[in-house]
Simulated scan of single mutants.
Amino acid sequence: MGIPAFGLGTFRLQGQTVIDSVRTALELGYRAIDSAQIYGNETEVGQAIAEAGVPRGELFLTTKVWIDSLARDAVVPGLEASLRRLRTDHVDLALIHWPSPGGQVPLSATLDGLLEARERGLVRQIGLSNFTVALMREALDRIGPGVLATNQVELSPYLQNRRVAAFAREHGLHLTSYMTLAYGKVLGDPVLQGIAQRHGATVAQVALAWAMQLGHAVIPSSTKREHLTSNLKARALHLDEAEMAAIARLDRHERQADPEGIAPAWDPA
């Protein structure tokens, strides 16, 4: 199965809030749910899925291996713990959440651990997150083409990550956009507002449609039913060439996610 073009993100959602968000999203027809070990919400995500009663075969679940579980002998136990929390026997996609800070754990060791997890049936697909061009190249050199499902990166109208996108496209590596709305900062953008007005759409729908039209998957999060419902409509929105070009000019190289001590040396703008 390929990466679903549209899913629900759960970053920063905790406790009953994430239970309600996932449950509502599933009621509305969402079928891809994105979590991570460090989010501290896998248990609640698993509870919401169990209570929703959606057949497991209809769902696409993603989790991410945190930096304390990147060692060769830590990947599988870490994912087994994730599966217990998520109440499932497998996830559809497991990502390296961040490259090992300072390269402390060799990337080859983590990739070997993910391949073992896949061989054991704990995960169906494996991939990357927050990987730069150099790190993507290292991963592809190690593991070969066609093995990695995606690289999940911050990508929004204000951070278009063109070097990463171009390299990924050239090497057949799919991208998943997170923070597509730049923590809501793009919602007040006059260019996006103008496009939204022409389409009778919301700015969020325009930004999400833009990313999907570039070929990326999106995983917006929301705690409100009306926003969850509205975001889904981005799938039916088509922007013309002039509108796509106008959004391309909004790039500010403005990054929201840059955790000190964890983030790699980003590619230049």
Results as ranks from 00 to 15, higher is better:
Thr24Ile: 04
Leu26Ile: 12
Leu26His: 12
Glu27Pro: 02
Glu27Gly: 06
Tyr30Gln: 11
Tyr30Gly: 09
Arg31Val: 08
Arg31Tyr: 02
Ile33Met: 08
Asp34Gln: 05
Ser35Trp: 08
Ser35Lys: 05
Ala36Cys: 03
Ala36Arg: 00
Gln37Leu: 10
Ile38Ala: 13
Ile38Asn: 12
Tyr39His: 01
Tyr39Val: 00
Tyr39Gly: 00
Gly40Ser: 02
Glu42Met: 04
Glu42Arg: 04
Thr43Lys: 13
Thr43His: 10
Glu44Gln: 15
Val45Pro: 00
Val45Met: 03
Gly46Pro: 00
Gly46Ala: 03
Ile49Met: 09
Ala52Tyr: 05
Gly53Tyr: 07
Gly53Ile: 11
Gly53Arg: 06
Gly53Ala: 09
Val54Glu: 12
Pro55Asn: 11
Glu58Ser: 09
Phe60Glu: 07
Thr62Ala: 12
Lys64Trp: 12
Val65Thr: 15
Trp66Phe: 15
Asp68Phe: 14
Asp68His: 15
Ser69Met: 14
Ser69Pro: 02
Leu70Pro: 05
Leu70Val: 10
Arg72Met: 14
Ala74Met: 14
Ala74Phe: 10
Pro77Leu: 13
Leu79Met: 05
Leu79Asn: 05
Leu79Phe: 06
Leu79Tyr: 07
Ser82Gln: 13
Leu83His: 09
Arg84Tyr: 04
Leu86Tyr: 04
Leu86Ile: 09
Leu86Lys: 03
Thr88Ala: 09
Asp89Ile: 11
His90Met: 08
Ala94Asn: 09
Ala94Gln: 13
Ile96Leu: 13
Gln104Cys: 07
Gln104Pro: 05
Val105Leu: 14
Pro106Trp: 09
Pro106Val: 08
Ser108Pro: 03
Ala109Leu: 09
Asp112Phe: 01
Asp112Thr: 05
Asp112Ala: 14
Asp112Leu: 04
Gly113Tyr: 00
Leu115Cys: 09
Ala117Phe: 04
Arg118Ser: 00
Arg118Asp: 03
Glu119Met: 11
Arg120Asn: 08
Arg120Glu: 08
Leu122Phe: 05
Gln125His: 14
Gln125Phe: 08
Ile126His: 06
Ile126Tyr: 05
Ile126Phe: 04
Gly127Ile: 00
Gly127Tyr: 00
Ser129Pro: 01
Thr132Ser: 04
Val133Asp: 01
Leu135Thr: 03
Leu135Ser: 04
Met136Asp: 00
